[in-house]
Write a protein that binds this DNA or RNA. Structure first.
Length: 493
DNA sequence: GCATACTTAAACAACA
DNA sequence: ATGTTGTTTAAGTATG
Protein backbone atom coordinates (compact mmCIF):
# COMPACT_ATOMS: atom_id res chain seq x y z
CA UNK A 1 0.00 0.00 0.00
CA UNK A 2 2.76 2.35 0.81
CA UNK A 3 4.32 1.56 -2.47
CA UNK A 4 1.10 2.38 -4.15
CA UNK A 5 1.00 5.70 -2.48
CA UNK A 6 4.53 6.37 -3.36
CA UNK A 7 3.94 5.62 -6.95
CA UNK A 8 0.90 7.79 -6.97
CA UNK A 9 2.93 10.66 -5.79
CA UNK A 10 5.58 9.93 -8.32
CA UNK A 11 2.96 9.87 -10.97
CA UNK A 12 1.66 13.16 -9.84
CA UNK A 13 5.07 14.59 -9.96
CA UNK A 14 5.69 13.22 -13.38
CA UNK A 15 2.49 14.72 -14.53
CA UNK A 16 3.34 18.00 -13.05
CA UNK A 17 0.34 17.89 -10.85
CA UNK A 18 2.31 17.94 -7.71
CA UNK A 19 5.23 20.23 -7.68
CA UNK A 20 8.47 18.62 -6.88
CA UNK A 21 9.22 21.50 -4.64
CA UNK A 22 5.86 22.33 -3.37
CA UNK A 23 7.01 24.90 -0.96
CA UNK A 24 8.80 26.79 -3.58
CA UNK A 25 5.83 26.69 -5.82
CA UNK A 26 3.40 27.67 -3.20
CA UNK A 27 5.26 29.72 -0.80
CA UNK A 28 2.56 32.27 -0.93
CA UNK A 29 0.23 29.95 0.78
CA UNK A 30 1.18 30.76 4.24
CA UNK A 31 -1.30 28.93 6.22
CA UNK A 32 -1.59 25.27 5.97
CA UNK A 33 -5.07 24.05 5.88
CA UNK A 34 -6.75 22.25 8.58
CA UNK A 35 -9.51 19.84 7.71
CA UNK A 36 -12.10 22.49 8.23
CA UNK A 37 -10.28 24.75 5.84
CA UNK A 38 -10.26 22.02 3.33
CA UNK A 39 -13.90 21.46 3.81
CA UNK A 40 -14.53 25.11 3.31
CA UNK A 41 -12.47 25.00 0.21
CA UNK A 42 -14.50 22.13 -1.01
CA UNK A 43 -17.65 24.02 -0.37
CA UNK A 44 -16.42 27.04 -2.17
CA UNK A 45 -15.08 25.34 -5.19
CA UNK A 46 -17.74 22.78 -5.46
CA UNK A 47 -20.31 25.46 -5.34
CA UNK A 48 -20.75 24.78 -8.99
CA UNK A 49 -24.42 24.77 -9.82
CA UNK A 50 -25.84 21.38 -9.38
CA UNK A 51 -22.86 20.02 -7.59
CA UNK A 52 -24.63 18.61 -4.69
CA UNK A 53 -22.25 15.79 -4.65
CA UNK A 54 -19.38 18.10 -4.31
CA UNK A 55 -21.06 19.68 -1.38
CA UNK A 56 -21.65 16.34 0.05
CA UNK A 57 -18.07 15.61 -0.36
CA UNK A 58 -17.24 18.82 1.32
CA UNK A 59 -19.00 17.53 4.35
CA UNK A 60 -17.05 14.41 4.35
CA UNK A 61 -13.78 15.61 3.08
CA UNK A 62 -11.59 13.72 5.31
CA UNK A 63 -8.38 13.03 3.56
CA UNK A 64 -9.24 9.46 3.89
CA UNK A 65 -12.76 8.53 3.28
CA UNK A 66 -11.56 5.99 0.88
CA UNK A 67 -8.91 4.33 2.84
CA UNK A 68 -10.98 1.37 3.52
CA UNK A 69 -9.79 -0.04 0.31
CA UNK A 70 -6.23 0.80 0.78
CA UNK A 71 -6.47 3.95 -1.19
CA UNK A 72 -5.36 6.83 0.80
CA UNK A 73 -6.32 10.37 0.16
CA UNK A 74 -3.41 10.75 -2.05
CA UNK A 75 -4.00 8.02 -4.43
CA UNK A 76 -7.41 9.47 -4.63
CA UNK A 77 -5.96 12.83 -5.24
CA UNK A 78 -3.78 11.48 -7.91
CA UNK A 79 -6.49 9.72 -9.69
CA UNK A 80 -8.79 12.61 -9.32
CA UNK A 81 -6.47 14.59 -11.37
CA UNK A 82 -6.19 12.20 -14.13
CA UNK A 83 -9.31 12.95 -16.02
CA UNK A 84 -8.40 16.56 -16.02
CA UNK A 85 -4.82 16.76 -16.80
CA UNK A 86 -3.18 13.56 -17.26
CA UNK A 87 -3.99 11.97 -20.47
CA UNK A 88 -0.48 11.35 -21.44
CA UNK A 89 -1.26 8.47 -23.62
CA UNK A 90 -4.05 10.16 -25.37
CA UNK A 91 -6.64 8.21 -23.62
CA UNK A 92 -9.95 9.51 -22.68
CA UNK A 93 -10.44 10.60 -19.15
CA UNK A 94 -11.15 7.07 -18.26
CA UNK A 95 -8.37 6.54 -15.86
CA UNK A 96 -5.73 4.30 -17.19
CA UNK A 97 -4.53 2.32 -14.33
CA UNK A 98 -0.94 2.49 -13.54
CA UNK A 99 1.03 -0.60 -13.26
CA UNK A 100 0.87 -0.49 -9.54
CA UNK A 101 -2.82 -0.10 -9.66
CA UNK A 102 -3.14 -3.07 -11.84
CA UNK A 103 -0.91 -4.87 -9.55
CA UNK A 104 -3.16 -3.99 -6.70
CA UNK A 105 -6.13 -5.11 -8.70
CA UNK A 106 -8.05 -2.03 -7.82
CA UNK A 107 -8.71 1.48 -8.91
CA UNK A 108 -8.02 4.37 -6.65
CA UNK A 109 -11.44 5.67 -7.39
CA UNK A 110 -13.09 2.38 -6.88
CA UNK A 111 -13.40 0.30 -3.83
CA UNK A 112 -15.84 -1.80 -1.90
CA UNK A 113 -18.18 -1.67 -4.81
CA UNK A 114 -18.37 2.07 -4.64
CA UNK A 115 -17.17 4.90 -6.72
CA UNK A 116 -14.74 6.80 -4.62
CA UNK A 117 -14.92 9.95 -6.59
CA UNK A 118 -15.28 12.70 -4.07
CA UNK A 119 -18.86 12.94 -3.08
CA UNK A 120 -20.08 10.21 -5.33
CA UNK A 121 -20.28 6.85 -3.62
CA UNK A 122 -22.25 5.39 -6.45
CA UNK A 123 -22.53 1.67 -6.27
CA UNK A 124 -20.81 -0.23 -9.02
CA UNK A 125 -20.90 -3.93 -9.08
CA UNK A 126 -17.69 -4.43 -10.90
CA UNK A 127 -14.87 -2.59 -12.47
CA UNK A 128 -16.53 -2.47 -15.81
CA UNK A 129 -19.57 -0.88 -14.41
CA UNK A 130 -17.42 1.48 -12.50
CA UNK A 131 -15.52 2.51 -15.58
CA UNK A 132 -18.79 3.12 -17.30
CA UNK A 133 -19.99 5.12 -14.38
CA UNK A 134 -16.78 7.08 -14.33
CA UNK A 135 -17.16 7.98 -17.96
CA UNK A 136 -20.75 8.95 -17.58
CA UNK A 137 -20.83 10.71 -14.28
CA UNK A 138 -17.38 12.10 -13.98
CA UNK A 139 -16.69 13.31 -17.42
CA UNK A 140 -14.64 16.32 -18.13
CA UNK A 141 -17.03 19.03 -17.14
CA UNK A 142 -17.13 21.98 -14.85
CA UNK A 143 -17.97 20.04 -11.83
CA UNK A 144 -15.30 17.44 -12.28
CA UNK A 145 -12.84 20.12 -13.04
CA UNK A 146 -13.68 21.96 -9.90
CA UNK A 147 -13.45 18.85 -7.88
CA UNK A 148 -10.11 18.03 -9.29
CA UNK A 149 -8.92 21.48 -8.61
CA UNK A 150 -9.97 21.19 -5.05
CA UNK A 151 -8.34 17.85 -4.70
CA UNK A 152 -5.21 19.30 -6.11
CA UNK A 153 -5.25 22.03 -3.59
CA UNK A 154 -5.80 19.57 -0.86
CA UNK A 155 -2.71 17.75 -1.92
CA UNK A 156 -0.77 20.92 -2.29
CA UNK A 157 -1.71 22.16 1.09
CA UNK A 158 -0.65 18.95 2.63
CA UNK A 159 2.61 19.09 0.78
CA UNK A 160 3.20 22.54 2.11
CA UNK A 161 2.44 21.50 5.57
CA UNK A 162 4.66 18.52 5.22
CA UNK A 163 7.52 20.62 4.05
CA UNK A 164 7.09 22.99 6.91
CA UNK A 165 7.08 20.26 9.41
CA UNK A 166 10.04 18.57 7.85
CA UNK A 167 11.90 21.77 8.17
CA UNK A 168 10.89 22.05 11.73
CA UNK A 169 11.95 18.52 12.38
CA UNK A 170 15.26 19.27 10.85
CA UNK A 171 15.74 22.21 13.09
CA UNK A 172 14.66 20.27 16.10
CA UNK A 173 17.05 17.49 15.41
CA UNK A 174 19.82 19.89 14.78
CA UNK A 175 19.01 21.53 18.00
CA UNK A 176 19.07 18.22 19.76
CA UNK A 177 22.47 17.50 18.33
CA UNK A 178 21.20 14.64 16.32
CA UNK A 179 22.98 14.82 13.08
CA UNK A 180 20.42 14.49 10.42
CA UNK A 181 21.91 12.31 7.82
CA UNK A 182 21.35 14.74 5.03
CA UNK A 183 19.72 18.04 4.75
CA UNK A 184 16.34 17.04 3.68
CA UNK A 185 14.78 18.42 0.59
CA UNK A 186 11.78 20.49 1.18
CA UNK A 187 9.35 17.89 0.32
CA UNK A 188 11.20 15.31 2.18
CA UNK A 189 8.68 13.31 4.00
CA UNK A 190 8.32 13.51 7.61
CA UNK A 191 9.70 10.14 8.15
CA UNK A 192 9.37 9.24 11.70
CA UNK A 193 10.49 5.76 11.22
CA UNK A 194 13.70 6.87 9.72
CA UNK A 195 13.92 9.50 12.35
CA UNK A 196 13.78 6.73 14.76
CA UNK A 197 16.62 4.90 13.21
CA UNK A 198 18.48 8.08 13.04
CA UNK A 199 17.96 8.50 16.67
CA UNK A 200 19.19 5.06 17.16
CA UNK A 201 22.39 5.85 15.48
CA UNK A 202 22.88 9.00 17.36
CA UNK A 203 21.06 8.15 20.43
CA UNK A 204 24.08 8.53 22.56
CA UNK A 205 24.01 12.21 22.02
CA UNK A 206 20.63 12.75 23.44
CA UNK A 207 21.20 15.77 25.53
CA UNK A 208 21.14 15.26 29.16
CA UNK A 209 18.46 17.14 30.87
CA UNK A 210 16.58 17.60 27.73
CA UNK A 211 12.93 17.12 28.19
CA UNK A 212 12.07 13.65 27.43
CA UNK A 213 10.02 12.93 24.41
CA UNK A 214 6.41 12.53 25.15
CA UNK A 215 3.84 9.92 24.85
CA UNK A 216 4.10 6.41 23.82
CA UNK A 217 7.30 4.65 23.49
CA UNK A 218 6.50 3.03 20.29
CA UNK A 219 5.21 4.79 17.32
CA UNK A 220 1.70 6.02 17.15
CA UNK A 221 1.58 3.74 14.33
CA UNK A 222 -1.58 4.34 12.58
CA UNK A 223 -1.47 8.03 12.05
CA UNK A 224 1.94 7.74 10.65
CA UNK A 225 1.11 4.99 8.39
CA UNK A 226 -2.16 6.19 7.17
CA UNK A 227 -2.07 9.82 7.86
CA UNK A 228 -1.08 12.67 5.71
CA UNK A 229 2.56 11.97 5.95
CA UNK A 230 2.10 9.22 3.50
CA UNK A 231 2.06 11.75 0.80
CA UNK A 232 5.70 11.83 0.91
CA UNK A 233 7.10 9.54 -1.59
CA UNK A 234 10.34 8.88 0.08
CA UNK A 235 8.97 8.13 3.42
CA UNK A 236 7.25 5.09 2.34
CA UNK A 237 10.00 2.66 2.03
CA UNK A 238 11.60 3.26 5.32
CA UNK A 239 8.78 2.59 7.62
CA UNK A 240 9.60 0.25 10.32
CA UNK A 241 8.90 -3.35 10.15
CA UNK A 242 5.76 -3.16 12.11
CA UNK A 243 4.44 -0.51 9.85
CA UNK A 244 4.89 -2.58 6.85
CA UNK A 245 2.24 -4.97 7.82
CA UNK A 246 -0.36 -2.94 6.24
CA UNK A 247 -3.79 -4.07 7.01
CA UNK A 248 -4.60 -6.13 9.97
CA UNK A 249 -4.49 -5.59 13.63
CA UNK A 250 -2.56 -2.60 14.64
CA UNK A 251 -0.78 -2.77 17.86
CA UNK A 252 -1.47 0.07 20.11
CA UNK A 253 -0.72 -1.31 23.43
CA UNK A 254 2.32 0.83 23.59
CA UNK A 255 0.09 3.77 23.88
CA UNK A 256 -1.21 2.30 27.01
CA UNK A 257 1.97 1.02 28.34
CA UNK A 258 4.04 4.01 27.78
CA UNK A 259 1.71 6.55 29.02
CA UNK A 260 0.45 7.89 25.81
CA UNK A 261 -1.64 10.82 26.70
CA UNK A 262 -4.78 9.78 25.06
CA UNK A 263 -6.62 12.77 26.34
CA UNK A 264 -4.15 15.28 25.14
CA UNK A 265 -3.62 13.44 21.94
CA UNK A 266 -7.29 13.43 21.28
CA UNK A 267 -7.67 16.96 22.39
CA UNK A 268 -4.94 18.12 20.14
CA UNK A 269 -5.99 16.10 17.21
CA UNK A 270 -9.66 15.76 17.68
CA UNK A 271 -10.38 17.48 14.42
CA UNK A 272 -7.90 15.36 12.65
CA UNK A 273 -9.28 12.11 13.92
CA UNK A 274 -12.73 13.35 13.30
CA UNK A 275 -12.08 13.96 9.68
CA UNK A 276 -9.28 11.70 8.69
CA UNK A 277 -9.77 8.06 8.30
CA UNK A 278 -6.92 7.34 10.59
CA UNK A 279 -7.00 4.78 13.23
CA UNK A 280 -6.34 6.31 16.58
CA UNK A 281 -3.23 4.94 18.18
CA UNK A 282 -5.01 3.78 21.26
CA UNK A 283 -6.41 0.54 22.40
CA UNK A 284 -10.10 -0.03 22.45
CA UNK A 285 -9.95 -0.12 26.19
CA UNK A 286 -8.31 3.26 26.35
CA UNK A 287 -10.79 4.74 23.98
CA UNK A 288 -13.75 3.28 25.75
CA UNK A 289 -12.50 4.48 29.03
CA UNK A 290 -11.88 7.89 27.63
CA UNK A 291 -15.33 8.03 26.19
CA UNK A 292 -16.89 7.08 29.46
CA UNK A 293 -14.84 9.41 31.57
CA UNK A 294 -15.51 12.17 29.18
CA UNK A 295 -19.19 11.89 29.60
CA UNK A 296 -20.86 14.12 32.15
CA UNK A 297 -21.93 11.28 34.36
CA UNK A 298 -18.90 9.15 33.71
CA UNK A 299 -21.15 6.53 32.38
CA UNK A 300 -22.34 5.65 28.96
CA UNK A 301 -24.63 3.18 27.41
CA UNK A 302 -23.19 0.94 24.82
CA UNK A 303 -24.87 2.91 22.16
CA UNK A 304 -23.45 6.12 23.51
CA UNK A 305 -20.05 4.60 23.39
CA UNK A 306 -20.65 3.68 19.81
CA UNK A 307 -21.71 7.20 19.09
CA UNK A 308 -18.65 8.58 20.74
CA UNK A 309 -16.47 6.44 18.57
CA UNK A 310 -18.16 7.48 15.40
CA UNK A 311 -18.34 11.06 16.43
CA UNK A 312 -14.72 11.31 17.32
CA UNK A 313 -13.14 9.14 14.72
CA UNK A 314 -13.76 8.99 11.06
CA UNK A 315 -12.07 5.67 11.20
CA UNK A 316 -14.89 4.21 13.19
CA UNK A 317 -17.52 5.31 10.78
CA UNK A 318 -16.91 2.27 8.77
CA UNK A 319 -16.52 -1.39 9.50
CA UNK A 320 -18.96 -0.86 12.25
CA UNK A 321 -19.59 -4.50 12.85
CA UNK A 322 -15.95 -5.10 13.52
CA UNK A 323 -15.16 -2.40 15.94
CA UNK A 324 -18.49 -2.50 17.67
CA UNK A 325 -17.91 -6.11 18.34
CA UNK A 326 -14.52 -5.20 19.63
CA UNK A 327 -16.01 -2.58 21.87
CA UNK A 328 -18.46 -5.02 23.34
CA UNK A 329 -15.75 -7.55 23.67
CA UNK A 330 -13.57 -5.13 25.54
CA UNK A 331 -16.35 -4.03 27.78
CA UNK A 332 -17.01 -7.57 28.78
CA UNK A 333 -13.47 -8.69 28.93
CA UNK A 334 -11.89 -6.04 31.04
CA UNK A 335 -12.83 -5.88 34.64
CA UNK A 336 -12.21 -2.20 34.58
CA UNK A 337 -15.43 -1.72 32.74
CA UNK A 338 -18.34 -2.08 35.03
CA UNK A 339 -21.86 -2.48 33.88
CA UNK A 340 -24.34 -0.66 36.03
CA UNK A 341 -28.07 -0.79 35.87
CA UNK A 342 -29.37 2.65 35.56
CA UNK A 343 -32.58 4.48 34.98
CA UNK A 344 -31.52 4.64 31.39
CA UNK A 345 -30.94 0.94 31.40
CA UNK A 346 -27.52 -0.49 31.51
CA UNK A 347 -24.64 1.88 31.46
CA UNK A 348 -20.95 1.26 31.48
CA UNK A 349 -18.57 2.88 33.85
CA UNK A 350 -14.88 2.71 34.47
CA UNK A 351 -13.30 1.26 37.51
CA UNK A 352 -10.11 3.20 37.62
CA UNK A 353 -8.56 0.87 40.10
CA UNK A 354 -9.03 -2.05 37.85
CA UNK A 355 -7.94 -0.06 34.93
CA UNK A 356 -4.70 0.74 36.63
CA UNK A 357 -4.28 -2.80 37.73
CA UNK A 358 -4.38 -4.18 34.32
CA UNK A 359 -1.28 -2.37 33.43
CA UNK A 360 2.28 -2.54 34.51
CA UNK A 361 2.77 -0.53 37.63
CA UNK A 362 4.02 3.00 37.57
CA UNK A 363 5.69 4.49 34.59
CA UNK A 364 4.00 1.59 33.06
CA UNK A 365 6.16 -1.20 32.15
CA UNK A 366 9.04 0.79 30.98
CA UNK A 367 11.60 0.91 33.68
CA UNK A 368 14.00 1.70 30.96
CA UNK A 369 12.02 4.69 30.12
CA UNK A 370 12.08 5.83 33.67
CA UNK A 371 15.73 5.26 33.84
CA UNK A 372 16.26 7.19 30.70
CA UNK A 373 14.26 10.01 31.96
CA UNK A 374 16.21 10.15 35.10
CA UNK A 375 19.63 9.69 33.76
CA UNK A 376 19.21 11.07 30.34
CA UNK A 377 21.65 8.43 29.33
CA UNK A 378 19.63 5.50 28.29
CA UNK A 379 18.07 5.32 24.92
CA UNK A 380 16.59 1.98 24.43
CA UNK A 381 13.02 2.98 24.71
CA UNK A 382 13.75 6.55 24.18
CA UNK A 383 14.07 6.17 20.51
CA UNK A 384 10.62 4.91 20.19
CA UNK A 385 9.39 7.56 22.51
CA UNK A 386 10.96 10.15 20.43
CA UNK A 387 9.37 8.76 17.37
CA UNK A 388 6.11 9.02 19.11
CA UNK A 389 6.88 12.52 20.09
CA UNK A 390 7.63 13.46 16.58
CA UNK A 391 4.62 11.67 15.39
CA UNK A 392 2.41 13.44 17.77
CA UNK A 393 4.00 16.68 16.89
CA UNK A 394 3.41 16.08 13.27
CA UNK A 395 -0.06 14.96 13.90
CA UNK A 396 -1.09 17.96 15.75
CA UNK A 397 0.04 20.22 13.03
CA UNK A 398 -2.75 19.08 10.90
CA UNK A 399 -5.38 20.76 12.80
CA UNK A 400 -4.67 21.18 16.33
CA UNK A 401 -5.17 24.38 18.07
CA UNK A 402 -1.91 25.74 19.21
CA UNK A 403 -0.79 24.17 22.36
CA UNK A 404 2.06 24.91 24.51
CA UNK A 405 3.80 23.06 27.15
CA UNK A 406 6.33 25.24 28.70
CA UNK A 407 9.19 23.60 30.41
CA UNK A 408 7.71 21.89 33.32
CA UNK A 409 8.92 21.75 36.81
CA UNK A 410 7.04 18.56 37.14
CA UNK A 411 9.59 16.68 35.18
CA UNK A 412 10.59 14.68 38.16
CA UNK A 413 7.21 14.29 39.59
CA UNK A 414 6.09 12.67 36.48
CA UNK A 415 8.21 9.75 37.23
CA UNK A 416 5.64 8.77 39.74
CA UNK A 417 2.80 9.04 37.45
CA UNK A 418 0.92 5.86 37.07
CA UNK A 419 0.35 6.25 33.44
CA UNK A 420 -1.23 7.88 30.58
CA UNK A 421 -4.67 9.04 30.23
CA UNK A 422 -5.93 9.14 33.72
CA UNK A 423 -3.46 11.53 34.99
CA UNK A 424 -2.90 13.29 31.82
CA UNK A 425 -6.40 14.01 30.97
CA UNK A 426 -6.86 17.63 31.21
CA UNK A 427 -7.89 18.80 27.90
CA UNK A 428 -11.18 17.29 27.74
CA UNK A 429 -12.95 16.71 24.58
CA UNK A 430 -16.43 17.76 25.13
CA UNK A 431 -19.10 15.38 24.34
CA UNK A 432 -20.36 17.73 21.74
CA UNK A 433 -17.20 17.23 19.87
CA UNK A 434 -15.46 20.41 20.63
CA UNK A 435 -12.18 20.33 22.29
CA UNK A 436 -11.65 22.30 25.35
CA UNK A 437 -9.78 22.00 28.51
CA UNK A 438 -12.44 21.69 31.06
CA UNK A 439 -11.81 18.97 33.47
CA UNK A 440 -9.15 18.72 36.00
CA UNK A 441 -7.57 15.38 36.41
CA UNK A 442 -9.17 15.06 39.75
CA UNK A 443 -12.52 15.67 38.33
CA UNK A 444 -11.75 13.41 35.54
CA UNK A 445 -11.13 10.49 37.69
CA UNK A 446 -13.05 11.05 40.81
CA UNK A 447 -16.13 12.02 39.07
CA UNK A 448 -16.66 8.43 38.24
CA UNK A 449 -19.40 7.62 40.56
CA UNK A 450 -19.62 3.96 40.48
CA UNK A 451 -16.65 2.84 42.38
CA UNK A 452 -15.26 5.38 44.67
CA UNK A 453 -12.44 3.53 46.24
CA UNK A 454 -9.52 5.78 45.88
CA UNK A 455 -6.32 3.94 45.70
CA UNK A 456 -2.79 4.73 46.29
CA UNK A 457 -2.39 4.66 42.60
CA UNK A 458 -4.85 7.36 42.14
CA UNK A 459 -3.42 9.27 44.97
CA UNK A 460 -0.07 8.97 43.46
CA UNK A 461 -1.25 10.15 40.18
CA UNK A 462 -3.40 12.97 41.20
CA UNK A 463 -1.07 15.74 42.13
CA UNK A 464 1.27 14.99 39.35
CA UNK A 465 -1.40 14.81 36.83
CA UNK A 466 -2.64 18.12 37.92
CA UNK A 467 0.71 19.54 37.23
CA UNK A 468 0.77 17.83 33.97
CA UNK A 469 -2.53 19.25 33.15
CA UNK A 470 -1.50 22.71 33.97
CA UNK A 471 1.54 22.56 31.85
CA UNK A 472 -0.23 20.96 29.03
CA UNK A 473 -2.88 23.49 28.59
CA UNK A 474 -1.17 26.71 28.30
CA UNK A 475 -1.83 28.40 25.05
CA UNK A 476 0.98 28.72 22.70
CA UNK A 477 1.80 30.88 19.80
CA UNK A 478 0.89 28.75 16.94
CA UNK A 479 3.65 27.66 14.72
CA UNK A 480 6.46 28.05 17.10
CA UNK A 481 5.43 25.20 19.21
CA UNK A 482 8.63 23.74 20.29
CA UNK A 483 9.05 20.10 20.75
CA UNK A 484 11.43 20.79 23.49
CA UNK A 485 8.80 22.64 25.32
CA UNK A 486 6.26 20.13 24.53
CA UNK A 487 8.05 17.18 25.79
CA UNK A 488 7.95 17.54 29.50
CA UNK A 489 4.26 17.88 29.76
CA UNK A 490 3.62 15.01 27.53
CA UNK A 491 6.03 13.10 29.51
CA UNK A 492 3.94 13.60 32.48
CA UNK A 493 1.39 11.59 30.86
C1' DG B 1 10.39 -19.44 23.27
C1' DC B 2 7.12 -17.70 26.40
C1' DA B 3 3.75 -14.76 28.68
C1' DT B 4 1.04 -11.03 28.02
C1' DA B 5 -1.75 -7.66 25.69
C1' DC B 6 -4.46 -6.63 21.97
C1' DT B 7 -7.44 -7.29 17.86
C1' DT B 8 -10.65 -9.71 15.29
C1' DA B 9 -14.05 -13.06 14.45
C1' DA B 10 -17.63 -15.74 15.81
C1' DA B 11 -21.06 -18.31 18.48
C1' DC B 12 -24.47 -17.91 21.67
C1' DA B 13 -27.99 -16.25 25.00
C1' DA B 14 -31.07 -12.81 26.80
C1' DC B 15 -33.98 -9.29 25.83
C1' DA B 16 -36.84 -5.63 23.63
C1' DA C 1 -38.38 -12.66 13.49
C1' DT C 2 -35.11 -9.28 14.11
C1' DG C 3 -31.79 -6.33 16.11
C1' DT C 4 -29.23 -5.06 20.15
C1' DT C 5 -26.64 -6.11 24.05
C1' DG C 6 -23.58 -8.85 26.57
C1' DT C 7 -20.57 -12.96 27.33
C1' DT C 8 -17.35 -16.13 25.99
C1' DT C 9 -13.98 -18.63 23.24
C1' DA C 10 -10.51 -18.93 19.89
C1' DA C 11 -6.97 -17.57 16.76
C1' DG C 12 -3.52 -14.53 15.23
C1' DT C 13 -0.14 -10.87 16.03
C1' DA C 14 3.02 -7.78 18.45
C1' DT C 15 5.78 -6.85 22.30
C1' DG C 16 8.83 -7.37 26.29
Amino acid sequence: MQQLQQQHILNLQRQGLVPLQPTAAMQSLQQAMCPSDLQQLWKEVSGVPGSDEALKQAEGLDLSTNSSNSTSAFPKAASAHMPLHSLPNGQSHTPKRDSHEEHAGSHPLYGHGECKWPGCEALCEDMGQFIKHLNNEHALDDRSTAQCRVQMQVVQQLEIQLAKESERLQAMMTHLHMRPSEPKPFNQPLNLASSGSLLKRDSDVYPEGLPHPPTSAATPITPLRQGPSVISSSSLHTHSHSHAHGVGPIRRRNSDKYCTPIASELAQNCEFYKNADVRPPFTYASLIRHAILESPDRQLTLNEIYNWFTRKFAYFRRNTATWKNAVRHNLSLHKCFVRVENVKGAVWTVDEVEYQKRRPPKMTGSPTLVKNMISGLGFGSLNASYQAALAESSLSLLNSPPLVTPPSAASLNMLHVGHDDVSSTVEQVNSNGSCSPTLSPQQYSHAVHVKEEPTEIEEDCRPVSLLAGITHNLPLPSDDRDLEDDLPADDLE
